[in-house]
Design a binder for these strands. Structure first.
Lengths: 127, 127
DNA sequence: AACTTTCTACGAACACCTTCGTAGATATCC
DNA sequence: GGATATCTACGAAGGTGTTCGTAGAAAGTT
């Protein structure tokens, strides 16, 4: 699970379903997608075919209704997306991005504490 | 500086120049853009025209060579991009995003300290 | 067996982004 | 003044992403 392109918007929607619900047929995946925006069955089929070629999903053709599963894990994709944003808009400064994230939306005390723990761990290990 | 679409990749390149160097003509902006990828003069002109329509930049037509300036500020755009990433890939969890950002790329001690200060300030004010 | 449903494959349409060539206006230079 | 340079406007092309209709194969129904 390493070399793969960054998924597009529609592709990410599908991956999210696979990450949450595990492998499934086109019909199952289509059913789990949000109703908004409405998307036809064949739209999802087509997307999955494309994603297969890109290596974002793999499929098992044993059954008539092929079963698709994610070929990339969520963290890897999220990491890529963060890195992309970092280079495109934050001059590769992690702290700038973190600041922006923390200030742009209310963060609960629990979340703050969680982040603090991570910072402690990072400083501890790099010491 | 509020309602505006998220800039595309090429548009963000141009905005970055405007944010860093201030207003300028097409020629000046074109000169400040990175050489890679190479982009023709009229490409930038066209982009600026489109960005004008979208409200991302404003232009002064006093001189023959129109002068463009950013109509959106960097923080606002960055905030939007972060929010977009947050909703698309992080289930609106700021802490998840922050974790991902902190672990996906080495963060210097100075940056960590800076983030810590921000956390202190946030907790202090929300207390 | 005929009909209906469910599936894949494929092509085409549409929208958006990016690129640049060309045309025509305006300024500058010799 | 005529050639050259610089500017804007515009159209069109090429790429990518997304959508869905249609066709044809396979399974299920009566």
């Amino acid at each position: 699970m390493k070399e793969h392109p960054t998924p597009t918007d529609a592709e990410l929607d599908i991956l999210s379903v696979l990450w949450e619900h595990g492998p499934g047929t086109v019909r199952q995946i289509h059913a789990h997608l949000p109703d908004d925006p409405p998307r036809g069955y064949t739209t999802i089929l087509k997307l999955l075919q494309i994603m297969s070629e890109k290596g974002l999903v793999r499929r098992n053709e044993r059954e008539r209704a092929h079963v698709y599963r994610a070929a990339v894990d969520a963290d890897s994709v999220r990491g890529r997306m963060v890195k992309h944003l970092l280079t495109r808009a934050f001059d590769n400064s992690t702290s700038k991005l973190v600041m922006q994230a923390l200030t742009s939306r209310r963060t609960s005390r629990a979340e703050i504490a969680e982040i603090r723990r991570l910072l402690d761990k990072m400083e501890g290990s790099s010491r």
